[in-house]
Simulated scan of single mutants.
Amino acid sequence: MSKTQEEIDLAYENGRFIPGAQAYADGWEAASVAFRARVGGEYDVSYGAHPREAYDLIAPDTISKGLFVFVHGGYWISRHKDDWTCYGEGAHQAGWTIAHLGYPLAPEVRISDIADSIARGIAAVAAKVDGPIVLAGHSAGGHLVARMAMPGVLPEDVLARVQHVLSISPVSDLRPLLELTMNENLRLDPEEAERESPALAPAPQTPVSVIVGAQERPVFLDQARWLAEAWDAPHIVLPGRHHFDVIDDLRDAQSPMLKTAFGH
């Protein structure tokens, strides 16, 4: 029996399957406001012509160990960098300069345009901070940071500095999204879906860890596995975590996730 459009769309729906989903979003936003109020930084610095092409850069109190860049999710169609500042807390505690990138959203732009924006944003912050670079992204952001690991996306001198990529709950193969109602906004066609899918690309030289919560939707478990298998990358399944709390370890400098990324 063929699936209804609603059933196809529900496979990629997260919030409706997480009790108290809105409370998680409210918590991210409140913690991020508090974090920005507590620490000084360079906020809303433009890196491009679009108003959303802006970054926040927050240095530690000590000599910086390197640059930690976080790219947020929201299916490329929603959310804002300001909602996620708190997810740089762990890296900041560990002595890294943290950067949060904003980017234009669909349907105004395509996913390939968003990847171009992220590459330019990373190059901009990398020019301001010396040392190694760690990239972390969640959901659509997990897709985008995986794209950055692929040759020819970042400038070669910037990619050479990337010591680890944390691709958290990524969408790694975009072809299933062609069937979703969401694609009315994403405007993916088969060619772009294939070109922008990390799981369909050769494994990069850059170390990548693929992380997912054990309680996530089946398609996200699949998407993470596909990338880990395609790239022969570490595949970390966090017990008891779902799509909205799988990134909580980024707030803890002592978490195994960050220790792995920082080479501890």
Rank of each mutant, 00 (worst) to 15 (best):
S2N: 14
S2R: 09
T4L: 02
E6F: 03
I8V: 11
D9L: 06
D9Y: 04
Y12G: 09
Q22E: 06
Q22P: 02
A23T: 06
Y24E: 07
Y24A: 11
Y24G: 08
Y24K: 03
S32L: 11
A34V: 12
F35I: 13
E42T: 14
D44E: 08
S46F: 08
Y47R: 08
P51L: 10
R52Q: 11
E53L: 10
A54R: 15
D56H: 13
L57Y: 04
P60I: 09
T62S: 15
F68N: 14
F68Q: 08
V71N: 12
V71K: 13
V71Q: 12
V71D: 14
H72R: 07
G73V: 12
G73H: 10
I77S: 13
R79D: 06
C86P: 13
C86F: 15
Y87R: 14
G88F: 04
T97M: 10
I98C: 14
A99I: 07
L101G: 11
L101D: 10
P104T: 12
P104C: 06
E108K: 15
V109F: 08
D113E: 09
S117I: 02
I118W: 11
A119K: 10
A119W: 06
A123Y: 07
V125H: 02
V125L: 09
A126W: 02
K128M: 14
V129Q: 07
I133L: 05
I133D: 00
V134P: 05
V134A: 01
H138R: 12
A140V: 04
G141C: 08
A146R: 01
A149T: 05
A149E: 03
M150E: 12
M150A: 10
G152T: 10
L154A: 11
P155N: 02
V158F: 02
V158S: 03
L159P: 09
A160E: 15
V162Q: 07
V162M: 01
V165R: 01
I168M: 04
S169E: 01
S169I: 01
V171L: 11
D173P: 06
L174G: 05
P176N: 09
L178W: 05
E184I: 00
R187H: 11
E191D: 13
S197V: 01
S197H: 06
S197L: 06
L200M: 06
A203F: 01
S209F: 08
E216L: 07
P218R: 00
P218Q: 00
V219D: 00
L221C: 01
Q223G: 02
Q223P: 03
Q223D: 00
R225G: 06
W226H: 14
L227D: 02
A228H: 05
E229H: 07
E229Q: 11
A230S: 03
D232S: 15
D232P: 00
H235E: 07
L238N: 04
D248E: 15
D248C: 11
L250T: 03
L250F: 04
R251Y: 00
D252S: 07
P256W: 03
M257G: 04
K259L: 12
A261M: 11
